[in-house]
Amino acid sequence: MGAGLAYAVLKLPAEAPGLSKTVADNIDMSGVDNPVTAVVVNFRGYDTLLEMAVLLLALLVVWSLGSEPQRRELAPGEVLVYLTGLLVPLLILVAGYLLWVGAVAPGGAFQAGSVLAAAGLLLVLSGWRFGARFSGLSLRITVVGGLAVFVLAGLAMMLHGGRFLEYPIAYAGALILVIEAAATLSIGLILVALFLGGRPSPDQSPGSRPESRAEK
């Protein structure tokens, strides 16, 4: 089978521009200058929309399987706590930059969301949890937000007279930024929530840390 696959790949033409020319020709209509972002949010918007739905679906299944498993946790050391305080703001800044730069250079919602998730995981690993304040409605709204904004933007375009997810050239850039911003938050939060492996239990106080941390 490996030989067959290798043969098939080697028989492919050495030069195949694929759709790169089509994308390059239509980039002016997309509202952004980075071809990958144009493809992700504009030209293949359906695909991305459904992928956001898949992320949400995975989270829903994980949450429906029960609440967070109880873990034995050690209090984080000084170094971890110090570095977390240092790195998390920096990571949030990087995520914001990646989101913004996605319009013109490599970057975008998925990259920014992953960086945001990394910041979230760092917080989780140093003992932070979704507290009662976050685990209710606000968490759910943020998690659904990315998909909801995407769908609403698509429907708004239908009301506007266009087709689903067909952005008018004048607003395309702004719309894509709004969609990507919501998607970034959702992706980051969904990944962190998936890492926790269950529905956040509401009995923990907001942003609670393990006991020994509080003593310091």
Partner: peptide, 30 residues
């Protein structure tokens, strides 16, 4: 396999695919 810049369509598919793969893995692990 292009003359100048690479084809952006597979790249877009992969960047979304990676995130979806991570979430599917998380689901499988749970």
């Amino acid at each position: 396999r292009t003359q100048s810049t690479p084809d952006p369509v597979p790249q877009a598919m992969v960047i979304t695919g990676i995130v979806v793969a991570v979430s599917a893995t998380a689901l499988a692990l749970v």
